[in-house]
């Protein structure tokens, strides 16, 4: 088992998969991080050297990810709501914010996530 940014990963797991398990890291950001520390596409967590692990941890701690990023998103929505904007209201009403139709099933994500305190 290997610790990256305080999370325990199995040695068999791909580094790309491990990195993308953090909220705020998708394929694009992941590619950048892996390129920066010379980690190849199919590298497993167990194959990383100690220095690479330290570097990854240091890199992740400088980024806004996980709870910091969630808080940032919630704050941004809160600002909209406090100003009384249409977007803020739509967020609070569990409705789509960007003008989508509301009579079809395309708003399931908005229904699920948009709350007074946004989920996820």
């Amino acid at each position: 088992m290997v610790f990256i940014f305080g999370v325990n990963f199995s040695e068999q797991q791909l580094v790309a998969k491990a990195l993308q398990s953090f909220y705020g890291i998708g394929p694009h950001v992941c590619k950048g991080i892996m390129a920066k520390y010379f980690i190849h596409n199919t590298a497993k967590v167990g194959a990383l050297q100690g220095r690479q692990l330290d570097d990854l941890g240091a890199e992740l701690s400088t980024m806004t990810i996980e709870n910091d990023l969630r808080r940032q998103v919630v704050d941004n929505i809160k600002r909209l709501r406090d100003m009384g904007t249409y977007r803020g209201r739509r967020h609070a009403m569990s409705l789509p914010v960007r003008g989508q139709n509301t009579r079809s099933t395309q708003i399931l994500t908005a229904r699920k996530l948009n709350r007074i305190e946004r989920r996820g």
């Binding site: 010379f38 190849h40 199919t42 590298a43």
Partner: peptide
């Protein structure tokens, strides 16, 4: 094909 470790 990028399947083995590399370093500069």
């Amino acid at each position: 094909i990028g399947h083995t470790a590399f370093q500069p």
